[in-house]
Lab assay of single mutants.
Amino acid sequence: KELVLALYDYQEKSPREVTMKKGDILTLLNSTNKDWWKVEVADRQGFVPAAYVKKL
C-alpha cells in the first residue's frame, strides 16, 4: 500500500474529510482526483487536499 506524508495540519470541514497533523503518515487509498486524495488515518477514511500531502 502507498503512504503519504502530511505536509501541513488540516482540519476537516465536512464528514467526508479527515483531520491530519503535519508529519502524520497516512495510507493513500485513491489519488485519481488531482485536488482531493482519499486517505486512511486512525481507522477513518476520508479526503484531504492533495497539495497538503506528499507521496513517500
Rank of each mutant, 00 (worst) to 15 (best):
D9A: 07
M20L: 09
Q45A: 13
K34N: 12
K34G: 10
R16I: 12
I25A: 03
K13F: 05
D43S: 11
K13G: 08
P49I: 03
V4Q: 01
A42R: 14
A6E: 01
K22G: 05
N33E: 12
L7D: 02
E12G: 15
Y8K: 15
Q45V: 13
T32I: 09
Y10E: 00
K38T: 09
Y8W: 10
V48K: 00
D9Y: 04
K34Q: 11
R44A: 06
L7T: 05
A6I: 03
K21C: 12
L29M: 08
L26F: 06
N30A: 10
P15L: 10
N33T: 06
G46V: 04
K22V: 07
L5Y: 10
A51D: 12
W36Q: 03
R16H: 13
L28M: 04
K54P: 02
A51M: 12
T32A: 12
D9C: 05
P15S: 12
L28P: 01
K34I: 10
V41P: 02
R16F: 13
D9V: 02
A42M: 14
S14H: 12
Q11R: 10
V41L: 15
L3C: 12
P15D: 12
V53K: 01
T27Q: 11
R16Q: 13
G23C: 10
L26A: 08
Y10P: 01
R44L: 06
P49A: 02
M20V: 09
A50T: 06
S14N: 12
T19W: 05
P49V: 02
K22W: 04
K54N: 07
Q11C: 11
F47R: 03
K55A: 08
N33F: 08
E2S: 12
L56G: 03
Y8A: 11
W37A: 04
K13M: 13
W36P: 00
L7Y: 04
A50L: 02
K55D: 05
K22N: 05
L7N: 03
A51T: 13
A6W: 01
K13H: 09
N33M: 10
D35S: 12
T32V: 10
D43L: 08
W37E: 01
A51W: 09
S14P: 04
K13S: 10
V53T: 05
P49F: 03
K22F: 06
S31T: 09
P15A: 14
D24N: 07
R44Y: 05
L3R: 11
A42I: 12
K1C: 15
D43R: 08
V39P: 00
Y52E: 03
Y8F: 13
D43W: 08
L56P: 03
L5A: 06
W36F: 07
E17V: 05
W36M: 06
N30P: 04
V39I: 08
V53N: 01
F47C: 12
L56E: 04
V4F: 05
D24H: 05
Y52S: 14
P49K: 04
I25L: 09
D9S: 08
Y8N: 09
A50W: 02
W37V: 07
N33K: 08
Q45R: 11
A50C: 08
R44C: 06
K1P: 13
K21G: 05
D24C: 07
K38F: 15
K13A: 11
T19Y: 04
A6S: 06
V48W: 01
T19N: 07
K38D: 04
K34P: 14
T19Q: 05
P15I: 10
Y52W: 07
V39L: 05
I25H: 05
I25N: 02
P49E: 03
E12K: 13
M20W: 00
F47K: 03
E40I: 09
V39K: 00
R16L: 14
N33P: 05
K55M: 10
T19H: 05
A50F: 02
D43Y: 10
A51G: 12
Y10L: 01
V18F: 09
N30M: 08
K22M: 08
V39E: 00
K21E: 07
V41R: 15
V4P: 00
G46I: 05
K54S: 12
F47T: 03
Q11I: 15
D24I: 05
W37C: 04
T32S: 15
V48S: 01
R16P: 06
P15T: 10
R44P: 01
M20S: 00
L28E: 00
Y10F: 07
Q45P: 06
N30R: 06
S31F: 07
S14R: 09
G23W: 07
L26W: 03
K13Y: 05
N33C: 11
T19C: 07
L56D: 04
R16T: 13
E2Q: 14
G46L: 05
L29A: 04
E17N: 05
P49Y: 03
F47N: 04
K55E: 08
A6L: 02
T32F: 10
G23A: 03
S14D: 12
V41W: 07
V18E: 01
Q11W: 13
A51F: 08
T19R: 06
I25Y: 06
E40W: 06
Y10S: 00
Y8M: 13
E40S: 10
K21L: 08
A42D: 13
K54V: 15
Q45L: 08
R16C: 15
S14E: 08
E17G: 11
D43H: 12
K21S: 10
K21H: 11
V41Y: 12
E2H: 12
T32L: 10
R44V: 07
L7S: 03
T27K: 12
E2F: 11
F47M: 09
V18L: 14
N30E: 15
E12C: 12
S14I: 04
R44G: 07
P49L: 04
K55T: 08
S31D: 15
N30V: 10
K22Q: 10
A42P: 14
G23Q: 02
S14T: 13
A6C: 13
K21P: 01
A51H: 14
L29V: 14
V53R: 00
L26H: 03
V48E: 00
Y8Q: 14
E40H: 07
L29S: 03
L29H: 06
E40G: 09
E40A: 11
